[in-house]
Design a protein around this nucleic acid. Structure first.
Lengths: 214, 214
DNA sequence: TAACTATTCAAGTGATAACTTGAAAATGTG
DNA sequence: CACATTTTCAAGTTATCACTTGAATAGTTA
């Protein structure tokens, strides 16, 4: 049946780990082909072909800016779809939790906080929120009230952080290592740190307060 | 990256039109291998292999009942994922609306009604709701207040239908032909008929009132 | 136990996918 | 206009997938 083949073509576009990585990355915001290639550790030619597969399936769109071409997700619905895939994988693929632990490192010391709970504590001004992604991503958009603290600059910012208040770190998504690394680093220094269980794109899509570059 | 490969494996399982058809069908309820094979017009051996791909990806589960094996969706999350895929396909794959029109037939005469609107009109007792799926599916679960009117028995039920009240037909999902066929048939006979824009599984997952077999 | 039914397994074939390499386009700069 | 940069295209190789056919398995029934 041609109609179901058409539906399946959307799923098939996401049926490659490399393309899944690309979609996860583009959920952060636009990227040029070269940037994407670097992030997913693939050749530019290969990345370009993956991007065209995604474009043909309607998942991403591109725009030219001088000599570069930037890709972005076609709409929020695509991010919703990506979230639905992760949901199913987490609840039904036993392998995923093992791989996630492996990828994120020892998680014993890393406590998680839900978006709802963070919103409540933010409203009561009980927490300090750190955006530990690279600074350009913070500049493109971040959780309202968060301050930028890229992982590699975190050690030099330690002195400025409150020692008694709770510190919540977040980054690109639930499977982004930056926040876990940040929490471990902060806890080693004796601060009360935990991580948000999602990332900026999920927070944004949930309609929670953000500050976005105009 | 192994973690993203694991996520992608879920998408890949849905990346075949036949398997998409199976998931769409299982959203209606459990089915034996043979039933599924008939519905998707494939050999039993081939269907069995598709089912095992879906099972390996964690999308379906099976149980034995005597000599038969019944498959079902692993959870509501899988139905959510399937809906997310259709959403993306409808909004970003131009081909889909063409194929859907082709598959569902000339839709000029087939007016659609949203689930919210139907709920409102049901509450005010303004409409008659017809479940035009095969009777066993009606028996397994249907919209609260709907009466069973399988497509092939519809002509014989015509006399019992009210000629002035609005009649709303629904079936398996937004891309199920039964409801469209029913609406066209009823309108030809001069009744005021339209279709629900979704099917029973979507209605159920939205938390709207249903009657389910115990 | 033998015969039967529903499902799964195994092997084979043709089609499609992922990645590499090297060349071609398209745009911008000196 | 020549030249550099970024991206895309084309061709080739290896691996994987969908479907078929025929046999094997696991329950059920006589």
């Amino acid at each position: 049946m041609a109609l179901f083949d058409a539906f399946a073509s959307v799923a098939q576009a996401l049926g490659s780990g490399r393309r899944a990585e690309i979609v996860d990355l583009l959920a952060q915001g636009d990227r040029s082909v070269e940037e994407i290639a670097n992030e997913i550790s693939q050749s530019v030619a290969n990345t370009s072909q993956h991007l065209q597969v995604l474009a043909r399936a309607g998942l991403v769109r591109s725009r030219r800016e001088g000599t570069r071409i930037f890709y972005r997700l076609a709409s929020d619905r695509v991010a919703d779809l990506w979230a639905a895939i992760r949901d199913v994988a987490v609840s039904h693929v036993a392998e995923v939790s093992v791989l996630a632990d492996e990828y994120l490192g020892e998680r014993d010391g890393v406590e998680q906080l839900s978006a709802e709970e963070l919103e409540r504590r933010l409203a009561r001004d009980q927490v300090v929120v750190l955006d530990v992604r690279p600074e350009p991503e913070y500049r493109a958009g971040h959780i309202a009230g968060a301050r930028s603290a890229p992982l590699d600059e975190l050690p030099s910012l330690l002195a400025k952080l409150p020692r008694r208040r709770e510190i919540v770190a977040y980054c690109r998504g639930p499977y982004c290592v930056y926040a876990d690394d940040a929490v471990r680093l902060l806890r080693e220094r004796g601060l009360k740190a935990l991580r948000l269980d999602v990332g900026f794109p999920e927070w944004h899509r949930a309609g929670l307060p953000v500050e976005i570059a105009s």
